[in-house]
Design a protein around this nucleic acid. Sequence first.
DNA 1: TCTAGTTGTAACAAAGATAGTTACAATAAA
DNA 2: TTTATTGTAACTATCTTTGTTACAACTAGA
Lengths: 142, 142
Amino acid sequence: MQISSRFTLAVHIFACIDVFKDDYKVTSEFLAGSTNVNPVIVRKILGQLKAAGLVEVARGSGGASIPKPLGEISFLDIYNAVECIEKGELFHFHENPNAECPVGRNIHVVLDDKLMRVQKAMEAELSSITLEDVMRDTRKLI
Amino acid sequence: MQISSRFTLAVHIFACIDVFKDDYKVTSEFLAGSTNVNPVIVRKILGQLKAAGLVEVARGSGGASIPKPLGEISFLDIYNAVECIEKGELFHFHENPNAECPVGRNIHVVLDDKLMRVQKAMEAELSSITLEDVMRDTRKLI
DNA sequence: TCTAGTTGTAACAAAGATAGTTACAATAAA
DNA sequence: TTTATTGTAACTATCTTTGTTACAACTAGA
């Protein structure tokens, strides 16, 4: 299963806010135009980012802004904000292995630390990349 | 989104085959009993593992076996076998960013290498764990 | 050769997630 | 007061996952 496009969408939204902040009011309609997704979807994602303290959204008057330095917002922050993973576990375990089987009884405890290692490796890489990196590369191309 | 339980299920199946190989014919029915999932689901996963050359399944007479050393089957091998990810990409990109927007035009190329770094970090950790590790820990507990 | 047990696969259903859409009350600035 | 915008509800369509029944194809052993 793939990680939902909400993640790339959220990064795109941040990039738009930063690039256009001085020249436009960056509304959900504006962002919908750049991302080519429905403005309601944009507002939902903005709501998740706002709940995580990563953006500010002006109710009524409209427009989104980024309340902290780009270098302090990592991909992991964004991932955690938009990718509402159950109990924070990347791997979905099959629910009821048979406890009367010596394998079924132990499979969970045997795998848990190994799956966590994989998840932590992924999260470590996510946290090593920030919006500052994204904007540096974006401005090079614009 | 979580990684499908097919992955933990597949590892469970391997563990069963290895533990019970000398005492039982390990059929899909047998594996369904230990994992507590439907035998057809087990057969589908066995089919994917077989296609990847990770198990052998005896048609007709029944029973699954592992045709190579446990140390040579990594979590990444199993992941790739059962987690049919579109074009091998972990991240789902939003489809049609607006090419007339300087951000929309460049977001894909800016993000691609960064998302690949995350995916590679995860795959590297997956490939560092083998069924040998799983069976060592399992046998300790049995 | 016949039988019993098993695999491979099709067809379908239920549940959950994703993504899109319309609609509208609440809000804030001009 | 008007206008633009946000936040959210309600609904839909599509896709994926998982479960289920059914059955043809297959193999070993009686």
